[in-house]
Simulated scan of single mutants.
Amino acid sequence: MFKKSQDSQRLPVNHLVMMSLFGAISAVLMVFEFHVPFIPPFIKMDFSEVPVIFSGFLMGPIYGVYVACIKILLNFLLNGTTTFGIGELVNLIGSMSYVLPAAYWYSRKDRTKKAAIKGIALGTVTTTFVLVVLNYFIMFPLYAKVMNFPLEAIVNATSATNPLVHDPFTLMIFMLLPFNLFKYGVTGIVTMMLYPRLEKVFSQFK
């Protein structure tokens, strides 16, 4: 059940425990990534953002950012990186772009179900925009340079599954944009399904 008020007295130790728990769960969920039909193999789906947005709703936007950082750090320590940290950095920026507007809107609008839905919608649109711009101007060119993998090769690999893609711009518009809308939209739906059931349990530790 969505609450309309928030307890102003919080115990930092309990928040630290919950942050660690959500961060660990999120890191584990990153491992269980999977392919989405009609999407190139190098773009994968996972549900690691659910604990991030959950913590943002429960404790506040900044705690969602902390959980996102814990998620990336644990995943980096446990699994290393195959992209020289570029993929992990994009993931972290995506998490922050998602949880900050969503949790802020939710906390400012009396923590109602309607506010949660609007917050998730705002976070989804914000993240999609940020990631498309970031990947187009910075991350994809950086990835191509660091990994010695030309952008043309990435475009060709993508066009094999989506004929609308024929250059980096159309790659962003017809592949990354709909994928991110789908990924973070589904994450929001899962959050809306789980949060009312689990909020009462975790609120006892606040």
Rank of each mutant, 00 (worst) to 15 (best):
M1Q: 09
F2C: 06
K3S: 10
K3Q: 15
K3V: 08
D7G: 12
Q9L: 15
Q9Y: 12
V13E: 14
H15K: 15
H15E: 15
V17N: 07
L21T: 12
G23W: 02
A24F: 10
I25V: 13
I25H: 03
S26H: 03
S26C: 02
A27W: 00
V28N: 04
V28G: 00
L29M: 12
M30Q: 10
V31Q: 14
E33R: 15
V36I: 15
I39F: 12
F42P: 11
D46L: 01
P51V: 06
P51K: 01
P51R: 00
I53M: 05
G56S: 09
F57M: 05
L58A: 11
P61Q: 02
I62V: 14
I62Y: 15
Y63T: 10
G64A: 09
I70R: 07
I72W: 02
I72N: 01
N75L: 01
F76W: 15
L77A: 11
F84P: 07
G87K: 06
E88L: 13
V90G: 12
N91E: 06
N91L: 03
S95Y: 07
S95I: 05
S95V: 03
S97I: 07
S97W: 05
S97V: 07
V99I: 06
A103H: 04
Y104N: 06
Y104T: 15
W105M: 12
W105D: 00
S107W: 10
K109C: 14
K109L: 04
T112F: 09
K113D: 06
A115E: 07
A115V: 09
A115K: 00
K118G: 08
G119K: 00
A121K: 04
L122E: 04
T127E: 03
T128S: 03
T128R: 05
T128K: 02
F129N: 05
V130H: 08
Y136K: 00
P141I: 01
Y143F: 14
N148T: 13
F149K: 10
P150K: 10
L151D: 09
I154G: 05
V155Y: 01
N156P: 03
T158E: 03
T158W: 14
T158I: 02
S159N: 08
A160K: 12
N162F: 04
H166I: 15
P168H: 06
L171A: 13
M172L: 13
F179A: 09
F179P: 02
F182N: 04
F182W: 00
Y184I: 08
G185D: 11
T187R: 00
I189K: 07
T191V: 12
T191Y: 09
Y195W: 09
P196V: 10
E199P: 03
V201K: 14
F202I: 07
F202D: 05
F202Q: 10
